[in-house]
Simulated scan of single mutants.
Amino acid sequence: MARPSVAEERVGQIVEATIRTIAAEGITGASLGRIAEEAGMSRGHVRHFVGNREELLRESARRFYYEGTEGESILPAGTADVAGAVDFFFSEEFAAPGNDNVVVLGFVEAARSDPALADLLVSAYQGTHVLLARLLAAEHPGAEPEDCDSVAYGVVGIALHNVFLSDIASAATGTETARTAAERLIATLPS
């Protein structure tokens, strides 16, 4: 396997520093200066490798959402069935409160004023919805496509609701309740 280029290594370091900075400082505190300091580089080097702050946030979001995932989806690569998707959505990794939630909310806040970043985030969640609808249709051949689409939308909505509330409410009871709701919604589809 070929060694990554120095530029690719630097971009990776800068993206990781961006994610850490957003987690620690929020999106408003994630200035190029703070990110550069976290990356152990000069601000000029950060701009050289990733461009301006908006370009950096877009690249960071792209990697945050898509590295190790199933296409344009937030589901992990290799998610082959509905049970695997549900297990992921209501796993400790996805549902637990913490820094990832801070980062996601930071990207959402930044997307309000950056249409390209907004498109990236919408694509990640719509891609998840579309993939889940395909998995549901494969497992429920008697279901109408629009019903699979609606159930997929509902399951993704339940999962995201659970994640965002987990920072301010009990994740232990909320996740179990949310998973049960998602499973009941899926059970409405005919086989």
Rank of each mutant, 00 (worst) to 15 (best):
G157P: 00
L56H: 07
L117H: 02
A83H: 10
L75Q: 00
G78V: 09
Y66M: 14
R62G: 01
E67N: 15
V104E: 08
R112S: 13
S73M: 09
E25H: 15
A110V: 13
G174T: 04
T28E: 15
S91P: 06
N52Y: 09
G98R: 07
A137Y: 07
I168E: 08
T175S: 08
A7H: 12
E16M: 09
A110C: 09
G84V: 01
A143S: 13
I14W: 06
T128E: 04
V163D: 00
D149Y: 06
E37V: 13
E37Q: 15
S73R: 02
F94G: 06
D114R: 01
R43A: 09
V11T: 12
H129F: 13
V104L: 15
D119G: 10
A30N: 14
F89C: 12
E54G: 04
S123K: 14
F89T: 03
A152I: 05
I27W: 04
A116D: 06
V108C: 10
A182W: 01
G71L: 04
V86K: 10
R184L: 15
P145N: 03
G40E: 02
A83S: 12
A83E: 11
E72N: 07
Q13Y: 05
I22H: 00
F49C: 09
A30E: 03
T69S: 14
L117C: 05
A116T: 09
E67R: 15
I74Y: 02
H140F: 07
V82H: 01
S123E: 13
S5E: 05
N99D: 12
A138E: 09
L185D: 03
F88E: 08
H140W: 04
L189D: 02
R62M: 11
E183D: 09
R47Q: 11
A181Y: 02
R3N: 11
S150P: 00
R58M: 11
